[in-house]
Design a protein around this nucleic acid. Structure first.
Lengths: 374, 374
DNA sequence: CCCCATTGTGAATCTTTTA
DNA sequence: GTAAAAGATTCACAATGGG
């Protein structure tokens, strides 16, 4: 039987079928179940542990809706010390289970990733990279109190400093248009049809990760036939992508409801050769240049006077990239629109700087900036 | 005298001229010199501490012999412990020196940032964001063994969870083409003419940060006239940008050679015009105007009919500045919230008056009122 | 059929002042 | 201290529905 069930009340048990031929879901506590696995038995570990968010009260959107926050019991810890103890416990068992030439990934946010990284290093793991998942479509900061929290961090590490880990350098380079894959990955969050729903139409899991993220992780450091372990399985994204890529998988999950969803999901997942026509969603970021970037970089210093092509208006650039022209203040687009009494205006082509007596549109400077950056 | 010199061999001293009118370089050990600064005296701290673990010197020997049973490598553990002791020492002094409404930035890489973040949290600092500096032109990974290390991480934090820190939300938004500034910043590394060289043409400092990075940091959370402290001053990027933006600055640097370069550099830096230094003002910092004041002053006479932007609702202004719309009665905010069935509503932007056939938000009248008063 | 306006939503440490 | 009121605040997508 592939679905390993610890002793539990009958009503909590997951149905023992279907049988998977390439993996298993273990229902139970992550640390206890990790301790039962044999030493040096898995090639890679992907872990998405609780982040230990410390949320206050409700948060409302500007239009009045309430943010559906992560307030699950599994994310509550009494203190940093309690979170650290939990982290060190599962990391210790994970290291025992990992093969000497295996590697591990852990994902987190600023709430927990520093604790995880410190614990990793203290336990002897060797950090290979920290990877930034730059979310193409993060939730904004509704109150204007901080920077939009637009990324999460993954730590990739080997068992120790001398370990011979596996890295598919060529595959990563190919995935990135023949340029070395960088430590920042732009990927959309999990939404749309990929986002699993329960019978009521609510999201089945509050923090489901996109398959594109796991795809890249698995392709980076495992081979077909390798065994991948996920101690915080949730709705089984790791299992689904592992199956698709021909890797074996083991998932440990405490919540019966999540495990059931994962079971159904993975059962419906086809290995890649049978669904070769599918493409992996991997949207690449378009280089977008904010006018402020030209100000910061010194290309258009604050105080520069801009004018339109016919020198009818002049406006001064301020420190934050906003313009000032009489009563009109704001972005290059907004001030241009105000002066033209138009609903909108392309500030990049409307505004010019003077160079050797000739007016050069901002758009030209933008092109030069892009050329210099690349 | 602005350049404060501790007792040192003469040949190590920095020339005491020129005098700065907006800051000072303190030559000496970061922790010792921090300890001499008065409590709650600086508005912001930017710190670029050493990334590597060989700190040298006998000052920060790891205290105690706590051996982690899981880790047999004593030297390895010892260097982390030494780094942690050093980190906690300077972070403790920094927190004492920081004003209660100030904030701090620390930059690092995966070698040290987890240690720094954990120490921060343990000492009571409250993380506001982790910011990823995505390098537009990083050094590639020559051996193809890992992902290109293409970013560094900055932690932005307040003194504690309840602290009232300062954030120039509007200025950041202006700098990013009127979109919320995100936690990932794409900026080029420091190179070309900006990169300081010594007399031999070698780079003067191995890890000089780009001014664009400091520009954004300083613009985000300081005001003109604020005092910025950099305990690892190096070649003075923080001081140069602070001077340019009209902020006061204090730099602590142990190496005479770096301090000399910084001195020359900052002396050659010109402050921006005050008008160029202006940024889009935050609404929260604007003086409050009671809606009733506009009614009293005749700008919005009693009886005026207000409507929302889509003319779905209308409400009549009463003599005391309250609104009436069917069963809803009260302030412009309360009636707007009631009609929207929302928990709250900004009546200033929700309600409009008709002017020459066009709807103008009350917020515009408020701006006109403020302009007329001044 | 397409097109556009509208609505919903995502790991969130998300306010400040006055009574 | 607490409670209520004032007032500031959102980006990228996906799904839906009307014309």
């Amino acid at each position: 039987m592939n679905l390993v069930l610890p002793v539990r009340p009958v009503q909590e048990r997951v149905r023992a079928t279907p049988i998977f031929d390439d993996g298993q879901i273990i229902l139970g506590d992550c640390i206890e179940e990790l301790a039962k696995l044999p030493a040096k038995s898995v090639d890679m570990i992907f872990a998405d542990p609780p982040y230990n968010l410390q949320l206050g009260g409700d948060l409302f959107r500007p239009e009045g809706g309430r943010v559906d926050a992560v307030d699950n019991d599994w994310d509550h810890f009494a203190s940093f010390a309690a979170y650290d103890a939990f982290t060190r416990a599962w990391l210790t068992e994970a290291r025992r289970v990992l093969k000497d030439d295996g590697s591990m990934w852990v994902i987190g946010s600023y709430h927990n990733i520093f604790r995880v990284g410190t614990a990793l290093q203290d336990l002897g793991y060797w950090v290979l990279n920290d990877i930034v998942w730059r979310k193409a479509n993060p939730m904004p900061n509704f109150r204007g109190t901080r920077f939009t929290n637009a990324h999460e961090t993954l730590i990739w590490c080997a068992k120790d400093a001398d370990a011979k880990y596996h890295f598919n350098y060529r595959a990563m380079k190919a995935l990135n248009d023949d340029l070395q894959m960088r430590s920042d990955w732009v990927l959309p969050i999990c939404s749309g049809a990929e986002r699993l729903k329960d019978v009521d139409g609510h999201k089945a899991h509050p923090t489901q990760k996109p398959e594109s993220l796991l795809y890249r992780v698995l392709l980076a450091c495992t081979k077909p036939g390798d065994t991948v372990l996920d101690p915080f399985f949730g709705t089984g994204t790791t299992g689904a992508v592992a199956r698709r890529l021909g890797r074996r998988w083991i998932g440990i999950e405490r919540e019966t409801a999540y495990a059931k969803v994962a079971e159904t999901r993975i059962h419906a997942t086809l290995p890649l050769d049978e669904s070769a026509m599918e493409t992996v969603p991997d949207k690449r970021s378009q280089p977008r240049v904010a006018f402020g970037l030209l100000v910061e970089s010194g290309m258009v210093p604050p105080g520069t006077v801009l004018s339109d092509a016919k020198r009818r208006w002049k406006a001064a650039v301020r420190a934050d990239g906003s313009l000032n022209c009489g009563p009109h203040t704001g972005s290059i687009h907004k001030v241009g629109a105000g002066l033209n009494k138009a609903p909108s205006c392309n500030g990049w082509t409307f505004w010019h700087v003077e160079r050797q007596g000739r007016l050069v549109p901002l758009d030209t400077l933008r092109q030069e900036h892009l050329a210099g950056v690349e």
